[in-house]
Write a protein that binds this DNA or RNA. Structure first.
Lengths: 259, 259
DNA sequence: GGAAATCAACTGGTCTGACCAGTCGACTGG
DNA sequence: CCAGTCGACTGGTCAGACCAGTTGATTTCC
């Protein structure tokens, strides 16, 4: 191996706040500071790291932006460790979309891929427990839908939990995490545009039917059908809301002849 | 619609630095501050926003962490606007992995899904230009491989450009961006463990062959085959390096009967 | 004795003012 | 015309102060 010019590399200055943030992040990611535990107070960190308070605060700001910690004025226990969350993921995705680097259509198509693959893998690798969790959420959705109080919040929470159960069954948490992040990014982009557009109870009805079909496909191990159902549902739901010029992307993604 | 209790929602305090950061981010994402343009100096922002310098600095720190701006001491022009970059995406993914929320196996499996879907869509939607770009990179890889100088850096750059070309052809930039982010996260996790392990020139040889096959499948519109090739290559390359207990995940992902 | 009001000791959020090392452009001396 | 100097910036850091809010112990009042 010829050590041509890789021997010396440009040295980049490391700011004090970076060293502080990195040390704390290391402790959190390694598990030394589990979620729920508390960081020392800012003024305490100042003496421990031997830096100024502004430096500590910039470090904490970075960690907070990354969703690793949360701080609240007046809390005598110090900042709370949250652990790793997909928040920063969805934030990054939402930025990509809002800056029009990625269109809404791409976002939805991306989620179609993610959901379809989650469903496919879940159909293959699920356990009885996984199926029970999914069934529970569908039952809950049904109760909420029947009561007609229009409690959409609880309904979409059950929906989220269903998807989480599928992601767990798939064995790949990344798929579920990313799907959730994409979903949040989509919501952040179109927001109210959909919110009250359609008749809520009719929509809930359809949603429940769809979830039942997915559960059926997964529990019977029909991977291709589970995947296709995931894609179709998203297409049906979002196709009318994406930019016309990207709709063909969705169409290409939904009509997958391989399954 | 029953406005039960959604009428009033808990009000959450908005910090001064958040308002500052949000205003600047808005200008960047909207295009008012295109990449390459400059922000006013910190002390200038202080008077414009009418806040303290620490507040301005925390706001800039947040934006810098998100990869939206870059600042350098002494620069009389102020912080440089970078525009939206996928850096924060890969950073978020890398954190998920390092915290062992996502295992290496999941990461690789995730990339299998991403690459396979990129290839699949590229096989359907490619243009002649796309194909030319891919061919260019393969040619470049071949020249680099033949010269046997072992310039791995340039080789992997050509590899990255090939994948970017595929992502562009697929019409979904998100797929490529995420794949790249995952790739960086994987590299960050196993790093040298692979670097000099195998014979470099033999590996380049195989890599070139694989890329030729993918290009062939894409240009002939054979979507299922393109997808399968993408999965298999990753499996072949990484299977030995993931944790044994997650290898079955990879196996489940690679042997997709649907294509 | 027990519930309610009070208070002191914190917390994080913000501001001010200062100093440093580095960068850059203009000025200056050859 | 070029090299060196110098001063006016920059961002990075620190110290110290004040504020509003939370908290828990203390005191007050029924």
């Amino acid at each position: 191996m010829a050590p041509d010019d890789d021997l010396f590399q440009p040295v980049k200055p490391v700011r004090a706040y970076q060293r502080v943030a990195q040390q704390i992040e290391e402790r959190i990611l390694s598990g030394d500071l589990p979620p729920g535990s508390r960081l020392p107070a800012e003024r305490e960190l100042v003496v421990r790291f031997d830096v100024g308070r502004s430096t500590v605060r910039e470090a904490l700001r970075v960690l907070q932006t990354a969703g690793l910690i949360r701080s609240r004025p007046g809390d005598p226990l110090g900042a709370e460790v949250l652990g790793v969350s997909p928040d920063s993921l969805s934030q990054a995705l939402s930025r990509l979309t809002r800056s029009r680097i990625a269109s809404l259509g791409e976002l939805v198509q991306f989620r179609m891929v993610l959901d379809a693959e989650s469903n496919r893998l879940a159909a293959r690798l699920h356990t009885a427990d996984d199926l029970a969790r999914m069934r529970d959420q569908i039952d809950r959705m049904e109760r909420l839908g029947a009561s007609s109080t229009g409690n959409l919040h609880a309904f979409s929470e059950a929906d989220a939990l269903f998807h989480r159960a599928v992601a767990e069954a798939s064995g790949n948490s990344l798929l579920g995490l990313c799907a959730r992040a994409v979903h949040e990014a989509v919501v952040g982009v179109i927001e109210e545009k959909i919110a009250g557009a359609a008749d809520a109870s009719a929509w809930m009805e359809r949603s429940i039917t769809h979830h039942r079909q997915v559960l059926d496909a997964i529990s019977s191990g029909d991977a291709p059908r589970a995947a296709r159902l995931g894609r179709e549902a998203l297409y049906e739901y979002y196709a009318d809301h994406v930019e016309p010029e990207t709709r063909r992307l969705l169409a290409a993604a939904v009509e997958d002849p391989s399954d």
